[in-house]
């Protein structure tokens, strides 16, 4: 009897301890970044470009990495979103139960399990192909080599789109499937075609889920390092025509490389070349704040959906 009580108590203790460690880890990481990084986060830090230097003074800020994160996220989502909606629509509205559909589902499943580093080297293999050179730039001046550089914001955005595609498809599919059938029937009964029914009735009703998919995809892209490392490269500054923020240089900026917050952190950590951890902490803090905001936004949308249903 006592043995049983000890067993149950120790199991419960284990469960509680794991839960509390989870809680502590979450707050611990945020607190750690806050303590270590808050000092370096100034307006100047946010608004100046970084300089490659070994000293912390004169290392500049994170304007270009933040812009890089923004550009990569935007291109990734812009490419992935129509793709994901189309695939989700096809799966939930058109797909018949046959081998092709089963294969499509399996392909999405397998794609969602592919590590981002593998997607990154796939990007390397694909985009160094000279026919796709217009997405980055051609390697010039090396004799006998006909290769594209394979690193640019555009290339990186496409890699990101491939990475988030399966997640966004799943979220969109759930949202579309949650639209009651009565909506479709009502629309079809009024004489609307299937296309009109989908574009004007089903997709608007699923918009909350689609927005959630966008936020989810953004979160994943913002947090990724492996794809940025191999498809955007390790240069901390923008390498296109300067000034990069000038609107007339947009294409050059997209075709050239830069950094994102994640590679900035990696490069400035002891693991990278910069070895300026205080800057890495400051950038991490900024990154976590962005992630927390995205999380809160996703939570808010879910909450609003619940309120509306009730």
């Amino acid at each position: 009897m006592i043995k049983i009580k000890i067993r149950d108590a120790s199991q419960q203790l284990f469960a509680w301890v794991s839960a509390l460690i989870t809680l502590a880890a979450c707050f611990g990481i945020i607190l750690f970044l806050l303590v270590k990084g808050h000092g370096a986060v100034t307006l100047e830090f946010l608004l100046t470009d970084p300089n490659p230097t070994f000293q912390a003074e004169g290392a500049g800020g994170i304007l270009a990495p933040m812009a890089g994160t923004f550009i990569v996220t935007l291109t990734g989502v812009v490419i992935a979103l129509p793709w994901a909606i189309a695939t989700a629509t096809y799966l939930s509205e058109y797909a018949k139960k046959n081998l092709a559909t089963a294969y499509l589902k399996l392909a999405i499943d397998v794609l969602s399990g592919v590590p981002t580093i593998v997607i990154a080297i796939f990007g390397v293999a694909l985009f160094t192909n000279p026919t796709l050179g217009f997405l980055s730039s051609m390697i010039e001046g090396v004799e006998g080599v006909n290769k594209a550089f394979g690193k640019s914001f555009l290339v990186c955005g496409i890699g990101m789109a491939i990475m988030v595609l399966p997640y966004m498809i799943k979220t969109c599919e759930e949202a579309i499937k949650a639209v009651p059938n009565a909506f479709r029937e009502a629309s079809l009964a009024l004489g609307a075609s299937k296309k009109i029914t989908i574009t004007d009735v089903v997709l608007p009703s699923a918009r909350r889920g689609i927005i959630t998919a966008i936020i989810l995809g953004m979160g994943r892209i913002i947090g990724d390092t492996a794809i940025v490392w191999l498809l955007l490269g390790g240069s901390i500054r923008m390498t296109g025509q300067q000034p990069w923020w000038h609107l007339s240089n947009w294409l050059s900026t997209l075709q050239n490389t830069g950094s994102t917050l994640t590679t900035y952190i990696f490069l400035n950590s002891p693991a990278g070349e910069g070895n300026k951890p205080e800057l890495a902490f400051a950038a991490s803090l900024v990154l976590v704040v962005i992630i927390v905001f995205l999380n809160a936004a996703a939570g808010l949308i879910g909450f609003m959906g619940k309120v509306k249903e009730e």
Partner: peptide, 25 residues
């Protein structure tokens, strides 16, 4: 609610930050 939020946030923290904290702690 706290536990749920902590789980979601832990899942969302980028791996490079885990690496950095691991490196320093």
């Amino acid at each position: 609610r706290f536990l749920e939020a902590a789980t979601r946030l832990l899942a969302a923290i980028p791996s490079v930050i885990y690496g950095l904290v691991g490196l320093m702690v």
